[in-house]
Every structure is written in C-alpha cells, then in structure tokens.
Computed example of a mutant assay.
Amino acid sequence: MKPLVSSLLIFSVFFVQCSSSNITSSWHSTEASSLQHGRIIVVGLMPESDKRLLQKMENHLADDLCNLGYDAAASSDIYDFETYKGQDQKQIIKELKQNGIIAVLTIVLLDKQKETYHAPKSMFDAAETDTNNFDVYYNAVYSKINEHGYYVNNTYYFWESSLFLMPNQELVYSAKTQSFNPSSAPALAHEYGRLIISDMLKHNVITNLHKQKDKKL
C-alpha cells in the first residue's frame, strides 16, 4: 500500500507543477511551396489584455524561423495592424506585397480558460496509519478532513496557427495546440514556437535553409 501511495503522491505533485503544450491536430497542403526568398511575417491575434504575451509569442516564432535561415519578423515590431481595420482587403495585401512579405504565419488565441478548485490537505499520512485499528484510522482521517486545504489555479490556452502564402492568401498549413499551466510567458512562447516549427519541418512545410546551403558547398 505504501509504494502505491508514494507513487500517487509523486504523480500528483508532478501534475500540479508541470506545464505542457501539445499539438492536438495539424493539416498541411500536399503541394510543394517555396518560402526561401522573401519575408515571413508572424502575426499574433489576441485580446489587448494579452499584449505582452502576444509580443513574446510573435518574437519567439519569428526568431525560430530566422534560426533556420528564413527572413522572418514579428508584426508587433514593424506593423500596427490596428491601423488596417476598415481598410480594403486588396489594399492590405498590396502593402504587404510591397514590403516583400511572401507569407503570413498567424498565432491565434482561440480561448483561454481559468479554473480554481479546492484541494484538501494530503490524506496520505492518514492512509499510512494502522488500518487494522478502527479507532486509530478514524481519528487520523477525521483530523485530516477538518484541516484547511489550499486552492489550485489552472489556466488552459487553446491556440491555432496558420500559414498563408501571399498574395493569393493560400493556406498551406494549420495547427491547433493546447497549453496547460505555463510557468511564464517566455516559457510558453518558447515551447509554442518549438512545437510549431518542429511540426512544419516534419511535414516539409519549411526546411532548414542552413543545411541546404551546406549541402551545396
């Protein structure tokens, strides 16, 4: 009984403390596309309250693309997309094309959910008492259930990233991702960028341009 209790305790602590992101679904075009020449703009679409997170997400993903040899930039560094509201769509595409934008990679926060639940004090000490003696067991458990517990706050993020080729706005890649209890905004941005880049490489949506150049030399 004690080994099982210890295992459950370790698992519970790990589950509460760890943060993780994972791709729940992804799609990519079967047609080959070239992204080698021109700039890729990373555009985050999130509520104003998450503006700090938006900038970190954009910059991490843009940096990850640059590390592969692409010319990529975060939209928050060079554009104010608020100014495009109400403009004609053709005019927006024209301006992007004039600035050498060949593709747009989005980061959309589809939903953000928070939950708080009450976790009672650990019952493991009580469970490890002499279960053959009812008096001892009863008193141990009774004292535990009357102790004050603590509150646990969980945060869930649901994301979608899509890659559009300009100027025809052709969708060539899309992925949905979920994140649970990120430890910090930088950690979430780093983990998310790594996931998306890895998945696009896996499906040959993008490639490591540095390795290509090395092969040619």
Rank of each mutant, 00 (worst) to 15 (best):
G86V: 07
D80F: 05
Q89V: 06
T83N: 11
G69K: 08
Q98F: 03
L61Q: 14
D80W: 08
L65R: 05
Q91P: 04
A103P: 14
I93Q: 10
T83S: 13
K90A: 15
L109F: 09
Q87P: 04
Y70G: 05
I102K: 04
A62V: 11
L61H: 05
Q98V: 05
F81P: 01
K112E: 11
A103G: 14
P120R: 02
S75T: 13
K121I: 00
D111Q: 13
G69Q: 02
E82D: 15
L96S: 01
L68G: 02
K85V: 14
C66R: 13
V104D: 04
S122D: 03
S75K: 05
L105V: 15
E82H: 09
G86K: 12
A73F: 09
Y117H: 14
D80P: 01
Q113C: 01
A119C: 06
L96Q: 06
N99T: 05
Q89R: 12
D80E: 12
G69A: 03
I107K: 01
N99A: 03
I92V: 15
D88W: 10
Y84E: 14
G69P: 06
Q113D: 10
I102Q: 01
S76M: 11
D63G: 00
D88Y: 07
L109G: 00
L68K: 09
E95P: 03
N67I: 02
V104H: 05
Q98A: 10
Y84S: 11
L61W: 00
L68E: 06
E95T: 14
L65K: 00
Q91F: 11
Y79K: 11
F81H: 07
I107Q: 00
Y70H: 00
I101W: 04
K90F: 13
A62K: 06
K121Y: 08
Q87I: 10
Q91K: 15
E82N: 14
K90Q: 14
A74S: 15
Y79R: 09
K97G: 05
D88P: 03
T116F: 05
F81G: 00
D71I: 09
A74G: 15
Y70C: 04
E82P: 06
D88S: 07
L61E: 10
Q87F: 09
D77H: 10
K121F: 03
Q98P: 01
D63R: 06
T83P: 01
D111G: 04
L109M: 09
L110W: 02
A103N: 06
K112A: 08
L105D: 01
D88H: 11
Y79D: 12
A119G: 00
C66H: 03
I93P: 02
I93L: 15
V108H: 14
Y84M: 15
K94V: 00
Q89M: 08
E82K: 11
N67K: 08
N67V: 02
Q113S: 10
Q87G: 05
E115I: 05
K114V: 04
L61D: 02
Y70E: 02
Q98D: 11
L61G: 01
K94Y: 13
K112C: 00
T106P: 09
D64I: 00
D77P: 04
T116S: 12
Y79T: 12
D77T: 13
